[in-house]
Design a protein around this nucleic acid. Sequence first.
DNA 1: CTTAAAATGTTATATACTAACGATTGAATA
DNA 2: TATTCAATCGTTAGTATATAACATTTTAAG
Lengths: 164, 164
Amino acid sequence: MIDAPQNSVFDASGHDHGACIHDALARAETLCQQQGLRLTAIRRRVLELIWENHRPTKAYDLLNTINAERGNAAPPTVYRALDFLLDAGLIHKIESLNAFIGCDAGHGDGHPKFLICRACERVAEIPSPAVDNALAREAKRAGFTIDHETIEIGGTCAACAHRG
Amino acid sequence: MIDAPQNSVFDASGHDHGACIHDALARAETLCQQQGLRLTAIRRRVLELIWENHRPTKAYDLLNTINAERGNAAPPTVYRALDFLLDAGLIHKIESLNAFIGCDAGHGDGHPKFLICRACERVAEIPSPAVDNALAREAKRAGFTIDHETIEIGGTCAACAHRG
DNA sequence: CTTAAAATGTTATATACTAACGATTGAATA
DNA sequence: TATTCAATCGTTAGTATATAACATTTTAAG
Ligand SMILES: [Zn+2]
Ligand SMILES: [Zn+2]
Ligand SMILES: [Zn+2]
Ligand SMILES: [Zn+2]
């Protein structure tokens, strides 16, 4: 029997989730300060909820939580916060799930790419210069100028495959 | 001044659209015969409308057209046809647009990949073994088993860039 | 302070999709 | 050919996702 690979992007062992959330928010604070953006209470709370979940999170789930806490949120409340966080690069939208996930900067210099496990719903944001380069070549061949890439790979992570 | 490249996947010059639609439907008929699938009137008409449009087409636009023609279509009418066509591999869903486009078999042996021009809304389905291989390597590194790939590249096609 | 821009509250609506169930069609087979 | 059973379709209703429009509040700058 073979163990799931260590160092897998899906490997959650040794994940201190409290620190994970804290770090993500600290990064957000820093980025907003640097860029002169305002991480208001709502925006911060939405980002925090997404990181607490640490999975692709639906807008209306956020809405329900916010409403339970503050009682007066309508869809625009959440969608505006999400738009801000998207523009700031603090979250990504997973188009194939209509859901949002915190950016862990895993895309590096390139475009974001996601491995999405359908079993555990976890998502890994992976860098891949090789993929970016291959796509850049294809685009060039077609005379196409790339603005944005949606790359979402669905399947099964090592832990879930191992688990059966 | 540089002309847009010929042979671009976006190059529509010399495109006989009547023949294009006809060929797509003929391919669909053949495939369904081979696979024992039933290309019913509704399914055929939905596929035809998508090819007539030759752009990512929204479910409710199809619904409105069908309703104008037959008067009695509800959302399930169209969504069932779309599900059938998706399962048969005759169309693809563009997740980032919530829209559907005819499969021109451009994905070859690999997973479908799309270049999507935001200016003219045209879509090119491109093969790219290099991209597939690079993604396969990334997945293997993570111990991840791929089921499905959503690869949608947004930007500007050569003709639109050339046009200004 | 005053003021203008940004952010939020609020209501309403648009768009995308699915569940459930009965009616119809059509291919297989008795 | 009559039976029958599964696939397809019609219909109603409801859920899920997202945005438009405008009023009010908050914030930062002058
Ligand atoms: Zn975490
Ligand atoms: Zn998993
Ligand atoms: Zn055509
Ligand atoms: Zn174009």
